Computed example of a mutant assay.
Amino acid sequence: MRTALLVIDMQNAFFEDGALDAQRDRVVGACNELIAEARKSGTHTLIVRTEHERDRSTWTLSMLDDDQGFSFHGTGQAEPLPELDIAGLPHMVKRRDSAFWGTDLLQRLRTWDVDTILLAGVSIHLCLAQTASDAYANNLRVAFAGEAMGAEAPDRADAMLDVLLKEYRQSKLSQDDALALLRG
């Protein structure tokens, strides 16, 4: 298997939520450990960020309904968490929950000859889950880096993971197993 590490939405905007902020140290620490191992092993790593435009052109239905955007391009909200060790890594901007929607992610993974993605970041029940679902639709295997993920609604995250793990045969890994996957 050829694996790529995707670190999703580890940005200031998402950690403004108190529930996610309480998980920040754990999630960032685990992500940094995965990133360090990926660098060491030569595993492709992609930092995926959500950004929107103030003119509402990139807003989701819920943002439009609530008349409230966030993570605007060029703002501090859209910036990666400062303690995340991502220097020199490629970045990709997305506009929806799935990292596949409207991006060149699939092309990048095909170019890298990847058949498995290791997902880390936030939020489990939204962006990670939607990316995992779309990966399945593209015949890519998915593993979730359990300790390197967070969610503001743990009950919904657990329910979503239950479906993905059982129905799509995806896996949730301990940190040691995620590191081993990156090592090959």
Results as ranks from 00 to 15, higher is better:
1 M>A: 13
6 L>Y: 01
6 L>D: 01
10 M>Q: 13
11 Q>L: 05
11 Q>Y: 12
19 A>P: 11
23 Q>N: 10
29 G>Q: 06
30 A>E: 00
31 C>P: 00
33 E>R: 11
37 E>L: 10
39 R>W: 08
39 R>V: 10
42 G>M: 07
44 H>L: 09
44 H>A: 10
45 T>H: 04
45 T>Q: 04
46 L>V: 01
47 I>G: 00
48 V>K: 02
48 V>C: 02
49 R>F: 03
50 T>G: 07
51 E>A: 08
52 H>P: 05
53 E>P: 06
57 S>K: 13
61 L>I: 01
63 M>R: 07
64 L>V: 03
65 D>F: 05
66 D>N: 09
69 G>F: 01
72 F>G: 13
73 H>P: 04
74 G>P: 10
74 G>S: 07
76 G>E: 11
77 Q>R: 15
79 E>S: 09
80 P>K: 08
85 D>V: 07
85 D>Q: 12
85 D>E: 15
86 I>L: 02
87 A>T: 07
90 P>L: 04
91 H>C: 03
91 H>A: 04
93 V>L: 15
93 V>E: 10
93 V>P: 02
94 K>E: 03
97 D>F: 06
100 F>P: 01
100 F>G: 01
101 W>C: 06
102 G>V: 03
105 L>M: 02
106 L>H: 15
107 Q>C: 05
107 Q>G: 08
110 R>V: 10
115 D>T: 12
115 D>S: 09
115 D>Q: 13
115 D>E: 12
117 I>F: 03
117 I>S: 02
121 G>I: 00
122 V>F: 12
123 S>F: 03
125 H>C: 09
129 A>W: 07
132 A>V: 06
136 Y>E: 11
137 A>H: 08
139 N>F: 15
140 L>F: 05
140 L>E: 08
143 A>Q: 05
145 A>R: 01
145 A>E: 02
145 A>I: 00
146 G>T: 10
147 E>N: 04
152 E>N: 15
157 A>K: 09
158 D>L: 11
160 M>T: 14
161 L>T: 12
161 L>M: 11
162 D>E: 14
162 D>G: 07
163 V>E: 11
164 L>Y: 07
165 L>R: 07
167 E>H: 11
171 S>G: 02
171 S>E: 11
171 S>F: 02
172 K>C: 07
174 S>M: 00
176 D>F: 00
176 D>N: 01
177 D>S: 12
179 L>V: 14
179 L>D: 09
182 L>H: 06
182 L>R: 06
183 R>C: 10
183 R>S: 10
184 G>N: 13
184 G>D: 10
184 G>Y: 15
